[in-house]
């Protein structure tokens, strides 16, 4: 009898995660891109629309907008990170992982973790602009914000991986992710308060996990929120679990 082959998946999981971080750290253009995108939105939207919209719930418009921009940046960064699965497939590295004695679940989970880490790093850069719009954070709020960002990023990256494991080309992924990202962003209340919307719009907004993610971020950053925070967190966590399950299931089935 051969001895049972007992091995832990944790080192492999850690390595898949670390590899993507190494790759990210060596790609300057991605880092610059992740800085310029939110800055542009915050300045143009915040101060542009801010000249028309004087105050929202007693806050200036740029203040009100900051959590939304962080959420948007997380959403974009998560989907961009999920592209690395297509990248790995295109350049052959996915095969190296697929023939290794590790489970498909380890690969998908490692990818979801690395993607959300990178997304939080990118989203975190927006926090550096908080003083620019007169949002000053205490340490406790900062930690709460980072925790919420990690949860939201994990949800978005899992969704991104689900999409990426269904598409075979960069172009296809671009088209489909835009179809998902745009409605998710515009129907999230990132740019407007969600409590006085026409009913048809309110329904769509309330089905969108981004709504709750941004609502929770608002609670941590600027102290206003439309839903109970526990409900926000529960909704996003539930969605993250569902998306991750879908991604792992699909990845197991197809490769």
């Amino acid at each position: 009898m051969e001895p049972a082959y007992v091995t832990s998946s944790w080192p492999s999981l850690g390595m898949i995660w670390w590899r993507d971080l190494l790759r990210f750290s060596r790609d300057q253009s991605q880092i610059i891109g992740s800085l310029s995108r939110p800055l542009l939105w915050l300045l143009v939207l915040g101060f542009g629309l801010g000249s028309v919209v004087t105050s929202v719930g007693g806050l200036t418009y740029p203040e009100f907008l900051l959590p939304g921009i962080i959420g948007l940046n997380l959403l974009f960064a998560s989907f961009l990170s999920a592209i690395s699965i297509i990248w790995d497939r295109e350049f052959g590295f996915l095969k190296e992982m697929l023939v290794a004695p590790i489970s498909r679940t380890t690969i998908a989970l490692g990818k979801a973790l690395s993607g959300s880490t990178i997304a939080v790093l990118q989203g975190g850069l927006v926090l550096a602009f908080a003083p620019l719009v007169h949002v000053h954070l205490a340490w406790g709020h900062l930690l709460a914000t980072l925790g919420l960002m990690a949860l939201l990023a994990f949800a978005c990256t899992s969704l991104g991986i689900l999409v990426a494991s269904r598409t075979t080309s960069f172009e296809g992924f671009g088209v489909i992710s835009n179809l998902i990202i745009m409605p998710m962003f515009f129907l999230s209340g990132a740019m407007f308060p969600v409590d006085r919307l026409p009913s048809w719009l309110a329904v769509l907004v309330r089905l969108n996990p981004m709504t709750y993610g941004i609502d929770a971020l608002r609670a941590a950053l600027i102290g206003i929120h439309a839903f109970p925070v526990w409900f926000d967190i529960g909704f996003v966590a539930g969605f993250a679990a569902l998306a991750l399950w879908g991604a792992v299931w699909y990845f197991n089935r197809t490769s």
Binding site: M15, R19, R23, G92, A100, P101
Partner: peptide
């Protein structure tokens, strides 16, 4: 396996590619 098309991670070093492989194979 040595595949027909390269399956190395070209953004990593030779050592990192090998180390990654070693970890995947426990």
């Amino acid at each position: 396996i040595i595949f027909q098309d390269s399956s190395l991670d070209e953004r990593l070093t030779a050592y990192e590619n090998l180390n990654f492989h070693g970890i995947l194979y426990h």
